[in-house]
């Protein structure tokens, strides 16, 4: 399914400011190939802005923000169309590209996020349902680079556990950049963990966990992961 180009995100000397002090000033960041990178940072540090810039929605004031391979975005606000049902929401991208929506594929993706036969309109769905429909829409786009802005924030802990496993499987083979405020979520899902901190924001921590830790997390963290968890919290603490 994947595009022939290896997926890549590249920020070089990236800077952006809204009126006052710059959010970013000369940030360098690169991610390439399949894998999940978790992006953490205090609220307001600029995580959503960074994702919007990578998606081409916020032009950088300085430097470059570029992707290779085609990008899809699951925004923090799930941005579902309030007038459209689940399948039409998932397949809206096809209409926007002037193509015929593949309703069968949209239905299959809804089933894969645990919402087969979801009826009604977004106004009647729970926060968790909306997030999952938005995830199905991201997967319908089938782009090598997937940007997810706090995709699981509205889910309760139980739903989260199942959806983490699901998301890990569904995002396989893509370059995913996943914003979260939960270090455990980052440890559960990510091959690489990046923490943003300071003003203008810089990379306060950039680590690769020693293993894909789902099994370890299910019981207790192993000592190495526990130390990394502590360092993430420390980095988050110093950044706010």
């Amino acid at each position: 399914m994947g595009a022939p180009v290896a997926p890549r995100i590249r920020l070089h000397g990236f800077g952006i400011a809204y009126g006052g002090a710059p959010l970013f000033d000369g940030l360098d960041f690169e991610a390439a190939g399949a894998g999940v990178t978790a992006l953490l940072g205090a609220s307001g540090v600029g995580k959503s802005t960074l994702l919007r810039a990578i998606a081409g929605l916020a032009p950088p004031g300085a430097g470059t923000a570029a992707t290779e391979g085609g990008v899809s975005l699951m925004a923090q606000d799930d941005a579902l169309l309030p007038w459209a049902g689940a399948i039409d929401n998932v397949a809206i991208g096809a209409r926007l590209r002037g193509a015929r929506p593949d309703r069968a594929r949209a239905a299959a993706l809804l089933a894969s996020v645990g919402l087969p036969q979801l009826a009604g309109l977004p106004g009647a769905w729970s926060g968790g349902m909306k997030k999952r429909v938005a995830l199905a829409r991201l997967l319908y786009e089938d782009r090598p680079v997937a940007l997810l802005d706090e995709p699981f924030a509205a889910l309760d802990a139980l739903t989260r556990g199942t959806i983490h496993a699901l998301a890990a499987r569904l995002l396989e083979g893509r370059l995913a950049l996943l914003v979260t405020h939960d270090p455990l979520e980052a440890l559960a899902l990510a091959d690489r963990i990046v923490v943003l901190g300071g003003s203008p924001a810089r990379i306060a921590l950039d680590e690769t966990p020693p293993q894909r830790p789902y099994a370890a997390l299910r019981d207790a963290l192993d000592p190495g992961l526990r130390r990394l968890h502590a360092r993430i919290l420390l980095a988050l603490g110093t950044s706010s």
Partner: peptide, 26 residues
């Protein structure tokens, strides 16, 4: 938020389809 989501999905040069499928119903 709807416009931004639509722009990422539609790519450049899809102004009319964004108008038809997003702005008009909204």
């Amino acid at each position: 938020a709807l416009l931004e989501a639509a722009r990422v999905m539609a790519g450049p040069g899809a102004r009319w389809r964004v108008l038809l499928h997003i702005a008009l119903p909204a």
